[in-house]
Structure formats: structure tokens, C-alpha cells
Amino acid sequence: MFAAELVTELEEIRARFPYPKAAMVPVLRRLQTEKGWLDKETQAWVAEFLSVNAIEVHEVVTFYPMLYADPVGKHVVHVCRTLSCEVCGGKELWRHLEKKLGVTRGETSADGKFTLRAAECLASCGTAPVMLIDNVRHEHVGPEEADKLLGGVG
């Protein structure tokens, strides 16, 4: 199901732990980077890879906000919604992005390019407002800067 090279990498991750199950989150994150989201087949593959039941993988996938059990757009945009960002330009950034992409938080744009998600504190409060595009952090993001950044990956 996955390239031999990737499987070798996953085996290296698994070997860091005395029990294979402990490799759960790093393995899922790695596969999500590869596939965009964690479909049923991928979850079943992970269950076998870690010698656990499929439900144990599903329990973990559905717990964490940064593991996606549903399809996402080509790029995932996380905008911080917590206090320091909100009071330092975050509200404007939210309004701008929702309008620009024609979505509300959690949704994917009609062209399938961007999923706009809310993130809780991204630990960069001193450089508010902050957002991630495909997990890369961008700081001091005003509306114009946001346009540039989205244009850059789109």
C-alpha cells in the first residue's frame, strides 16, 4: 500500500518504542503528510502495522484535532483563535479569510484548494496573529500578508 522507502521510515519510528502501539501518533502524522488525511484503509493498515485493533487506531484519530479522519483540501490553513491573537488582529484575519475563501471555519473552499480550520494557541503569541499553512508557521499575518501567503501555495 505504501512505498518501501516510507515503510522503512515507519519501521524506524516503530523501533523507538518498546511496544509498537506507542508509535501510533508519529506514524499517523507521517502517513497524513503523505496522503492528506487518514482514510479507513490507512487506519486499517496502521492497525496491522502496530499489531492493534482497528478501533484502537480510530479512537486516537478521532481524538486529536491535528489528525484528519475526513478529507481536507489541498492545503490546510490553521488560524489561531485564542486570546492573544484575537485581541491583536486575529478577528480581522478571520473575517478576511472566511470572506476570501467563501467558507466558515472548518470548511473547504469550493475549488478544493484550502481547508480553513481554527487552531487553539499555537505558542507564538508574541507575534500575533499567527497561522499555519500546511503546518508551516506564519507570524504577524495581516489580511494582505494572508493573501500573499495563500497565493504563494495556491
Binding site: R16, F17, Y19, K21, A22, A23, M24, V25, P26, L28, R29, L50, V52, E56, E59, V60, F63, Y64, P65, M66, L67, A119, E120, C121
Partner: peptide, 29 residues
């Protein structure tokens, strides 16, 4: 001594030390 990196996936609760342990063990944290 072996030093390994592992990770969470966006849950504040995992900063609570026993939640962190469950997170590393690969169960619901």
C-alpha cells in the same frame, strides 16, 4: 542512553503529564 523524539497532534490536554504518558503509549490521552 537513547534519546527519541515523539509527538502529539494538537491536544492541549497532552501537556498534562499523565495525559502525555497515555499519548506516548498510543492510547486516547
Amino acid at each position: 542512553l537513547d534519546v527519541h523524539l515523539t509527538m502529539g497532534a494538537g491536544a492541549y490536554i497532552c501537556g498534562e503529564e499523565t495525559s502525555l504518558l497515555n499519548s506516548i503509549e498510543g492510547v486516547r490521552p
